[in-house]
Design a binder for these strands. Structure first.
Lengths: 223, 223
DNA sequence: AAAAAATGTATCTAAATTGTAACAATTACC
DNA sequence: GGTAATTGTTACAATTTAGATACATTTTTT
């Protein structure tokens, strides 16, 4: 289980991030100011920290000094106004940052990227009633196991890790079949078809005509 | 892969930047004078240009004129002495600038910021209640998704990127259909019609008789 | 080596997109 | 107002793309 600490004093934003990351299968903890965050970090280990720069008591910068010693990747949240003058001191330690207001989808994508970079991709992906146990290469739907072939599983993982993101056909071919593969073939479509059937994802895997496919979670909240 | 062009005639400085940006994972190319830079820019696309103002043959200013048409963000390098008098003419097109001598860490931070800002600006175009998520090929109006075909989306993007600017029919055909396309057909008009309908842009997309079309944001027009 | 499973290809069908042609409406100009 | 040029509209044809099916090829397992 991947653990993420959300340090953000604005409750609505914190809740939004919490809701979306939890739904994406991460184990989240919230802290509402720097001191609380420091306390929590004393006791428990996290795989990623999402850190607002403007915090009461201790600023994100000060907290950063402490986090750096823990070697946990950090994604900063910062308001646009405070970007230029303050960012340079920070970027040395941060893995990435987002400027508020941001799209929650983008944050999710960056979380994935940072975790993957740290080789800590989540072991269990969830989408509605579907759970993918990445480590053991097993998929269950509503608790019951569904047997997928390796290629099918790869494709499902790619789609799930990029929920609500349109994946261009070229990119899918590139990531799963390798760059040189012929994009004109019906191979991808066929695998999509098989996934849809096996997992009952006819609605969730949207076809973006002439572009690609997108795994869509309609409940998702965006700012 | 993000490509950066470094235009700097002083070899030690150029090397320093090259070394650090390469280490940071960017794909770099060096040019040692303005002419060389212009040549390289003819052939290849870059995501960012780092440009010294004092160059042999062509000055940074002259090169800037050319770069502006390419719409690539630029970070200027300038000596302190030449700052006041010359900088204002430049800043219009540049994303940022650095005064020599500078800390390489700071340059790295700015590179990050500019790239992020630029991609951010690219990622989501907005016009009134319409938002175009370029990356995901999605359009929403007042939060609700409107499905557009690729051609429609291309045309909408072109109009939105040139708001309040009249686009000649020839130019639109050139940019979206390619230069050789017959300008006499009703194709463009038809697509405009479809956009107007789908997005309720009957008022905002103005017809400029005998010339072309203009996406007009009435709030922004000042006399 | 044979059998089974996985993966890919060929081909057809269905659907969506895009473009064309004919005509109606509008605009600019006399 | 009348006229010619231009743009808008409609219906539909052509083209492109995705989905379905059967089957061939490759890989894995026995």
């Amino acid at each position: 289980m991947i653990r993420i600490l959300i340090v953000e004093d604005e409750k609505p934003i914190s809740d939004l991030i919490l809701w979306n990351l939890t739904k994406a299968g991460y184990c989240c903890t919230c802290a509402y100011d720097g001191l609380e965050a420091a306390d929590i970090l004393e006791d428990r280990r996290f795989d990623l920290i999402i850190l607002d720069v403007m915090l009461p008591h201790i600023s994100g910068y000060e907290l950063m000094e402490y986090i750096r010693s823990l070697e946990i990747p950090v994604i900063f949240l910062t308001a646009k106004s405070s970007l230029e003058d303050r960012m340079k001191g920070l970027t040395s330690g941060a893995e990435d940052y987002m400027v508020k207001p941001f799209e929650i989808v983008e944050l999710l994508a960056r979380v994935n990227i940072v975790l993957r970079r740290y080789r800590k991709a989540e072991r269990c992906l969830k989408f509605r009633d579907i759970a993918v146990d990445v480590e053991n290469q097993r998929v269950t739907r509503d608790g019951r196991e569904i047997v997928l072939t390796p290629k099918e599983l790869e494709l499902l993982e790619l789609l799930m890790r990029n929920r609500n993101i349109t994946l261009f056909r070229e990119r899918i071919y590139e990531e799963i079949w390798g760059a040189e593969y012929s994009v004109e073939s019906r191979t991808l479509d066929l695998h999509i078809q098989r996934l849809r059937r096996k997992l009952g994802l006819e609605e969730s895997i949207k076809t973006v005509f002439k572009v690609g496919y997108r795994m869509e979670d309609t409940d998702e909240v965006s700012v």
